[in-house]
């Protein structure tokens, strides 16, 4: 358990003390119970509901390039690809889901035309080179359909990563409960709140 997890637990315990037990024990315990923690982790039984295995791997590969592992885990470890599958299945209207899937296929098509291989099978340097092209095109003054896909992919990666336990608690910080301080030195925190 990381230091940040501990500080979150401490914060919750402080709130529970403040409440004199008003927050039910399960509410506090639920955040940290073994069962809950297991539920957060990828279950061996987990399977995508919209993406194929190849599409899932493509999403995971793209996401990891966007937010890679550094001294903290990256998008793949944070399960961004599982989050994307959940959104595509349970949130997106059919037309938007299909637009995203078409965009994914477009990445593979570009990798094929550039390198003669699908994206996930291309060399890492080739993948990065193609992403540089996509990223430049996505923020150019005149933009096409590729731009929509890449910006959306980047947005989903950031949401999926920074709202995950890894992204929020290891890479960034979760604001502790208790007080509000409106004006503190940034150096006293040292990184952004999730």
């Amino acid at each position: 358990m990381s230091r940040n997890t501990i500080s979150r637990r401490r914060a919750l315990q402080q709130v529970a003390l403040l409440l004199g037990g008003a927050i039910s024990a399960p509410t506090v315990a639920g955040v940290f119970s073994t069962a809950t923690r297991r539920a957060w982790a990828a279950s061996p039984a987990w399977a995508p509901r919209t993406l194929s295995a190849a599409q899932l791997e493509l999403v995971a590969t793209l996401a990891e390039h966007i937010v890679p592992q550094t001294e903290t885990p990256g998008a793949r470890a944070a399960g961004v690809h599982r989050f994307v599958d959940t959104l595509l299945t349970d949130h997106y209207p059919a037309a938007e889901r299909d637009r995203f899937l078409t965009g994914l296929a477009g990445v593979d098509a570009q990798a094929q035309s550039h390198y003669g291989k699908r994206f996930a099978e291309s060399a890492a340097a080739q993948q990065v080179a193609l992403l540089r092209e996509l990223d430049a095109a996505a923020y150019a003054a005149t933009r096409g359909e590729d731009a929509w896909f890449f910006r959306r992919m980047k947005e989903l990666t950031l949401v999926g990563y920074y709202t995950s336990e890894i992204g929020a608690m290891q890479e960034l910080r979760v604001s502790p409960f208790g007080t509000y301080r409106g004006d503190i030195p940034y150096t006293s925190i040292g990184r952004a709140w999730a």
Binding site: H65, I66, P68, G74, A138, Y139, K154, L158, Y162
Partner: peptide, 15 residues
């Protein structure tokens, strides 16, 4: 972090 989606860049530099 959400500002990252509106600006070019990815990878270690973005993170």
């Amino acid at each position: 972090w959400a500002r990252g989606a509106g600006e070019p860049g990815f990878g270690v530099e973005l993170k």
